[in-house]
Design a protein around this nucleic acid. Sequence first.
RNA 1: GCGGCCGUAGUCCAGCCUGGUUAAGACAUCUGCCUGCCACGCAGACGACCCGGGUUCAAAUCCCGGCGGCCGCACCA
Length: 569
Amino acid sequence: MADKHDKVMELALRRGFFWPSFEIYGGVSGFYDYGPLGATLKKKIEDKWREFYCVKEGYLEIFSPTIGPEEVFIASGHVESFVDPMVECKKCRTPFRADHLITSVLDIKLDGLSFKELEDLIREKRIKCPDCGGELSGVWSYNLMFKTHIGPGERKVGYLRPETAQNMFVLFNRLYSFYRKKLPFGVAQLGKAYRNEISPRQGLLRLREFSQAEVEIFVDPEDKTHKGFSSVANKKLRLLPRDGKEIIITAGDAVKKNIIAHELLAYQIILTQEFLLEIGIPSQKIRFRQHAQNEMAHYAADCWDAEVSTERFGWVEVVGIADRTCYDLESHEKESKTELKAFKQYSKPKKKKKEILIPNMRELGPRFKQMVGEIVNKINSIGDEGVRDFLESGFIEIEIMGQKIKLDERYLEVKYVEETITGEKITPHVIEPSYGIDRILYCMLETAYTERDNKVVLMLKKPLAPIEVAVFPLINKPQLNEVAKRIYDSLKNEGFYVTYDENDSIGRRYARVDEIGVPYAITVDFESLKDDMVTIRDRDTTKQFRVHIKDVSKIIKNLLKGEITIENI
RNA sequence: GCGGCCGUAGUCCAGCCUGGUUAAGACAUCUGCCUGCCACGCAGACGACCCGGGUUCAAAUCCCGGCGGCCGCACCA
């Protein structure tokens, strides 16, 4: 029995939403081409995402390279953590995660062992294949990143990015200046990411090259609020928290009861829900699942997945909403030796009284001559502790060019000063909603797929349909064709995605456009030649209304926007 | 990566077990006629054995390998 997944895949293939890539060379799994309808649909989903995040939230978009130098992914942890240690049974060839196997056989916890250590443990403890008792192979690693080389030769290693996020962390200082050094700010990026999956399946749900739409919101770690939160606090969410008990709760209560860690995360979850509803996923097919502690990515502190219910695969993750804390910025700061911090100004400057040492130049100059410069630098860099030592013992000892110099009260004077501290440097935390565009597109198609009288009707949300309006002559006659083509041309000029068809019967043409989700069809009949009116037919109800040709474009526009319906034109 | 099943026009599939003339059908597509609102009818056209090797006089068919798909195991930041 063909399930909905089969039917959607068949439709996608036949009508040009997407196709397996490189078919004439036998195909390569994990890659798909978007055909004309799929590419247009994808573009519309992406534009909707832009409308939500870039326009309404003001998180402007950037566009970065998809290849990055090794250092980026060493810092991000992907070179080390995006790897699985694998062993294989030499006899039955079953592969195992080496660490999982040892953990389960020896009933011990393993943390951060090297591959060699894992291998030694297996040999020492004589661990065999749990399935057949066969001998195990050595430990080998599988890194899910695509590796490449930058420039000639193999000296400079690069990787195809496994997520779009890293570019935005690497660019932090530039972005921080762009946003005029104020937190919070957000940056968006829509682009390709690459993961060399061991065994990709399930069509668009697990690709080796896929489109991510990510936003990184940089915030003060002590202020994870959102100014728009009060307006969404009453909206309901279907949550599946870590404890596994599903609840329906308002965003406000979820924060109050500490189910969702903070307002900003809750706001992002609501925003994601609004997005999914807007593209036509019904609310009963949406839930948010909290990651278990051990399931979370190496960088995340808390993470909620937006999941959409599908017929074959059950709940499918389409958006991940994570609090990545300061992990990424700190890692890049360390690896690049470049400060990646924001300056947090205190609401009131803090005053601090302290003692400092003032060099007595009158004495130091004649005594130390050309060494004075160095000595003064050393004195100025002496911390509070050094000052305290001096107060107690009456001298300090410094080292200049291997020479120890003792300085006593003759050379130094203690001064009491009041220092004003206006703020401090902090590493912002990052909240990240990360959309899987391809998965969303699949879920949209599956949701939209319906059958009516044995015919497929793709009930896509109207503004998102790749073809927005079809124009037909009632029958294939030159007089009608001429008028229909004129309407077709004028709609194209108005900016609509339009199709024109005069082949076969009117019924077949309606069926053809229903199948690809065209929301409205305009039909020119013989009456039209007399009264300048045409029929608009609604995809979902097949209801028809006659309107003036001159009003067609305005009416279609309003229908698509949902400002009017076919019943109240 | 392993195991099971599978791979034939754009799509769905017959034929394969038991090798043999021109690989059948349906739908879709195209052309012509017809057709006055939901896949109408008639006539015609286009179009396929996943790739490589082997066995054989002869391979879609049997054997081996590869690639791809589905399911299960494993994996999935």
